[in-house]
Design a protein around this nucleic acid. Sequence first.
DNA 1: CAACTATATTAAGATATTTTAATATACTTA
DNA 2: TAAGTATATTAAAATATCTTAATATAGTTG
Lengths: 94, 94
Amino acid sequence: MNNRLAEKMAAVLKAIAHPDRLMIIEILAGGEKCVNKIVERLDSSQSLTSQHLNLMTNKGVLARRREGLHIYYRIANRDVLKILRCLFRHCRNR
Amino acid sequence: MNNRLAEKMAAVLKAIAHPDRLMIIEILAGGEKCVNKIVERLDSSQSLTSQHLNLMTNKGVLARRREGLHIYYRIANRDVLKILRCLFRHCRNR
DNA sequence: CAACTATATTAAGATATTTTAATATACTTA
DNA sequence: TAAGTATATTAAAATATCTTAATATAGTTG
């Protein structure tokens, strides 16, 4: 692992290293959702959720598409789910 | 995933979400090493490296043992390596 | 025990992340 | 086109992380 790659890897981890953002990824694991559904399930504010969604989209973790008034978010690359599953197993028993 | 678990998971991610710390984990994947070996391979300062090592030890990612003047660090739980491998594969091609 | 080696701790400043509140934008529909 | 709904952006304050430099500690050896 060279320095450049280590930085890329750290950037991906930082993009998901937040409780709300992990929950968002879990919510989207079940398929794409529009923002207000995500806000409801998170029990967080619209603004903050939107910022989390934007951050993860900019970092390539999520992708979005518009359909009328709604914007649907989805997981951009399923690799992230693998990482989450390892992490989940690791944390569940401790 | 409940809130408590999401926080635990985020804490583990934060503990490793730093280029130097990822490199340290990779170095230790080959077996335990003492601090000065790690410092050499990282090309970072003794103090900063020691702080990274402490942080990861406190968060349960690493473990250490003393042998005379040297303190040997090792990976506390191999789950972390699985996470890193997923992440590595994810980042290598982008 | 003095000098040395290996490592840890501390404090401070720099930088980044998180959160809130207010406001803006984009699209839809009456 | 005005009002309404869904979402995004911005700015500021609060908090956390990162880095450096200086110093402390713990063990070893002459």
